[in-house]
Each structure stands twice: as C-alpha cells, then as structure tokens.
C-alpha cells in the first residue's frame, strides 16, 4: 500500500470505519511511514474531539462507588449489573443455603434443648431411683431390726414364761426332784427333773450337755410300768444348759413313772421308741411322781 492510497483512507481509519483487512493494511503502513503516521495522528486528535460533542448526562451516583470500590478504596454498594445478573442464581442458592443452615441450626438447637431436658429428667429419675433404693434398703433394715426385735421379744417372753414356771415349780412344797447323770457318751452331763403335783407340771433342767449336730435332738423318756413314753425333745443352749417343761395330757395314763432317761434321736422324724444311745439316766432309785 502506497502513501497515496493510504491517505485516501486516513480519515475513515481515524474514525474506525475501515473493515478489518483495510485496517491491518493501514496499520502496517503507518508503522513504516512517518509522514502518514503524523497525518493519521493529526486526524485522530480531531476525531477524538467528537466525544466532547456528546450531550452530558449525569452518571448514576453509584457509578462512583463502583469505581472507587473497584480499586479497593471502599466497598461498593452496587455491584456491576453483569455480575448482578450472573450472581442472582448464586444469591438465590446462597439464600436457600443460608435458610437451610439457619433451619439446621435451629433444629439442632431444639434437639439439643430436648436432649438436655431428657438428660435432666433422666438425672432426676436416677436420683429418685437411688433415693427409692436407699429408702428400700432402710426399710429392709428396719424390717430386719423389727424382726430381730420381735424374735428377741418372743425369746424374752418365752424366757419370762419359763422363769415364771420355774419360779412356780420352785415354790411348790410337793416337789420330788429326780437326778439324771450322763452316761459314757456324756459323762459330765447332769439333769434334774422336778414335778409339781399342784400344777400338774414337770420340768427338766440340764447342764453340761454336749453340743450336737442340728440333725440330732435330745429327747426325754418316761418309763411307766412296761411302757416308755416320750415327754418331749429339746435342744441345749450354747452353754450346754437346757430346759424342758412337761405337762401331761389327760390320757397319759399307764401308772406312775418308774424311770427317766434322755436319748439322742434323729430330728427329722418323730421317735416312738428310745434309741440305744442313752445320754442320761436316773442315778438313784427314787420314786418319781406320776
């Protein structure tokens, strides 16, 4: 492209009115031709004046905020419209996400409150259960103490009855005591049988009886003529003493008692006849009443 051809297009070139191919040819020439470049520059200055002819419109105030915000001077209140358009979906998604997030937080908070309430309730129930267990334990302990007291009361009452009976036996004037002495299986054992005709009551008092298994019991026998009759069984106390009261029934006939003996019998069954294991027997040939 020569200078003459170029200068025919220099004015439209400065206005940007050449097509792409012509523009490329023009620029290639201007890079190498100072005269044409200076002319193009002069017309460019003229063309640039055209922008001043545009009626001036007041720019929106937000434009300044956008410009200064864009360089970090301050945060813009308004974002570019293209950005606004493209970010609407993101904003909607963010709002939804935020809503879900808030909902999740509220839900989690509600659950947390409910869990805490349940924990408090469980703790209260645990306290109540513990107090109930303690009260039950206390009640059982009290019941045990009551049972022990009742048992002791019964023992005491029984002892009082025995002592009253013995006191009655002791003050009676018609007592005929019968002494029993331990045999070879219990040589230290001693018993005394006292009968009160007025009270129609007999009592056997023993000492130094050997301890026996729980499966065995002592049993007192009375010999009436040719019959041997059981007068009762008894267990020795830990100190070896023992007491047996005997009140004969109305049909316990058979003649007067001619002898007394104590045997060891099985505790699991009622013995009808004395076994061969005699523990104590009468020492003197005395006449026992009834």
């Amino acid at each position: 492209m020569d200078c003459e051809t170029v200068r025919e297009d220099i004015e439209p070139h400065t206005l940007g009115a050449l097509d792409n191919a012509a523009t490329r040819r023009m620029e290639a020439h201007l890079r190498t031709c100072t005269a044409c470049r200076d002319l193009a520059r002069a017309y460019t200055l003229t063309a640039d004046q055209l922008a001043l002819a545009v009626p001036v419109v007041k720019a929106p105030p937000r434009l300044k905020e956008r410009v200064l915000g864009g360089v970090g001077a301050f945060r813009p209140n308004v974002t570019p419209a293209t950005l606004v358009r493209t970010s609407r979906w993101w904003a909607a998604a963010a709002v939804l996400f935020l809503a879900f997030g808030i909902g999740a937080v509220v839900w989690a908070f509600t659950l947390s409150v409910q869990v805490n309430d349940l924990k408090d309730a469980n703790a209260a129930f645990a306290d109540l259960a513990q107090k109930d267990a303690e009260q039950r334990t206390t009640l059982l302990h009290l019941q045990s103490q009551l049972s022990t007291a009742q048992s002791q009361q019964r023992v005491l009452e029984s002892t009082l009855v025995d002592q009253a009976t013995l006191l009655g036996l002791a003050v009676e004037g018609d007592l005929i005591p019968t002494e029993l002495q331990g045999t070879t299986v219990a040589p230290d054992a001693q018993c005394r049988y006292i009968w009160s005709t007025r009270q129609s009551l007999g009592g056997l008092f023993c000492q130094k009886l050997p301890a026996i298994s729980f499966a065995i019991t002592y049993q007192l026998w009375a010999v009436r003529g040719d019959k041997v009759v059981s007068m009762g069984s008894f267990m020795p106390r830990p100190d070896g003493s023992a007491l047996l009261l005997y009140k004969p029934s109305g049909e316990s006939g058979g003649g007067p008692i001619t002898n007394l003996l104590v045997t060891w019998e099985s505790a699991s069954q009622i013995a009808r006849q004395p076994s061969a294991e005699v523990v104590l027997e009468r020492t003197l040939p005395q006449q026992a009443s009834r």
Binding site: V54, V56, A59, R62, L63, V67, T82
Partner: peptide
C-alpha cells in the same frame, strides 16, 4: 465521570451497559 458515562451511553444506548463500560474505563 459524567463525560465518560455520557460517551458510553451515546454509543451503546443502554444505561446499565454504559455504567459498566465507564467503570471499566476508570
């Protein structure tokens, strides 16, 4: 600022687009 915005608006004829262009220029 007003001049840049006005020239941009004169060319594209759209206020929002002119605003974007003016911001880009600065």
């Amino acid at each position: 600022g007003d001049y840049v915005y006005s020239v941009s608006l004169r060319v594209v004829g759209d206020a929002q687009l002119a605003e974007d262009i003016a911001q880009e220029v600065f």
